[in-house]
Amino acid sequence: RVWGVGQQLDLGHTHPLVGRSTPDFLLVDGRRMGELLRAGQAVLLVFDAAASLYEAVDVERARILSIAQPAVDSLGLSALLVRPDGIVAWASDGADAAGLAQAVQEWTSSVGREAIA
């Protein structure tokens, strides 16, 4: 059985994917989302070239796997950030670098609080 598929965490963002399990994107090079998450890092997928997004995650480069690769079906997204647990932390239909930077900051600060608790 699979539990919790319909659940959504309240992460404070308005995009409908945020707080939900990530879709199983198939990248054009054949990799799937599950394979990317095996390393235990957050994953930033950039489906279209938006170099400014990489600056938003630069300070957390060691904790976030950044991949610029088109997907077979990107669901109309330009990019998304997925936490190591497979939950979408941020998603955008455009190049929202400020929103991404905020999501990275929120995610990393929540990880720090969990480690302290």
Results as ranks from 00 to 15, higher is better:
Gly40Ile: 03
Glu106His: 11
Gly6Val: 02
Glu106Pro: 02
Ala95Asp: 04
Arg31Ser: 05
Ala91Lys: 09
Ser21Cys: 14
Phe25Thr: 04
Gly19Gln: 00
Glu60Val: 10
Leu53Ile: 06
Leu9Asn: 10
Ala42Val: 09
Pro16His: 02
Glu35Cys: 05
Arg31Gln: 11
Ala62Thr: 09
Val43Glu: 01
Arg38Ser: 09
Glu106Asp: 14
Ala91Leu: 01
Gly112Lys: 13
Ala115His: 01
Ala49Thr: 10
Leu26Gly: 07
Arg83Ile: 10
Gly19Met: 05
Asp73Ile: 00
Phe47Val: 04
Glu114Asn: 01
Ile67Tyr: 03
Val82Ile: 06
Ser21Asn: 09
Val28Met: 06
Arg83Tyr: 00
Arg83Met: 11
Val46Gln: 12
Leu75His: 12
Ser109Asn: 12
Pro70Arg: 15
Ala71Tyr: 08
Leu11Asn: 04
Ala103Ile: 09
Val43Thr: 11
Asp48Ala: 14
Pro84Lys: 14
Val18Thr: 03
Ala97Ser: 15
Leu77Thr: 03
Val72Thr: 12
Pro70Gly: 10
Gly4Ile: 03
Pro70Ser: 14
Asp96Trp: 02
Ala79Val: 07
Glu60Asn: 05
Gly34Lys: 02
Ala89Phe: 03
Val88Asp: 01
Val82Ala: 07
Asp96Gly: 08
Glu60Asp: 02
Val57Ile: 04
Glu35His: 12
Leu100Ala: 09
Val72Asn: 01
Val82Phe: 01
